[in-house]
Simulated assay, not measured.
Amino acid sequence: MKIKKGDTVKVIAGKDKDKEGKVLSVDLKNNRVIVEGINMITKHTKPNMQNQQGGIVNKEAPIDLSNVMYLHKGKVTRIGYKLDGDKKVRVAKSTGEVLD
Rank of each mutant, 00 (worst) to 15 (best):
K75P: 05
E36G: 09
K88Y: 05
K43A: 08
M1Q: 10
E60M: 14
K93M: 15
L28E: 15
Y81F: 12
I38E: 00
K19L: 11
L71C: 00
I3P: 00
L24G: 07
N51T: 03
D27L: 04
V11L: 03
K82A: 13
I38S: 01
E97K: 07
K17Y: 07
E60T: 10
D64I: 08
K10L: 03
K87D: 10
N48C: 07
N67K: 15
R90E: 01
T45N: 13
N51R: 03
V11R: 01
K15Q: 12
T45Y: 10
M1T: 12
T77Q: 00
K5R: 15
V91K: 04
Q50C: 09
T45M: 14
K75F: 11
D64H: 13
A92H: 01
G37S: 05
P47G: 00
K17S: 05
D64S: 12
K43Q: 12
K46T: 11
N58T: 12
K5A: 08
Q52T: 11
S94P: 04
D7N: 13
D7Y: 04
K82Q: 15
D27C: 05
N67M: 10
V98T: 15
N67Q: 15
I34V: 15
K88C: 08
L71M: 03
G6N: 08
V33M: 03
I41L: 11
Q52L: 15
V76E: 12
A13D: 11
G80S: 13
I41W: 05
L71Q: 01
G6M: 07
E97F: 04
D86Y: 12
K59V: 09
K22S: 08
N48E: 03
D7C: 07
K93N: 11
P47S: 01
E97D: 14
N67R: 15
N30G: 08
T95C: 03
N48L: 02
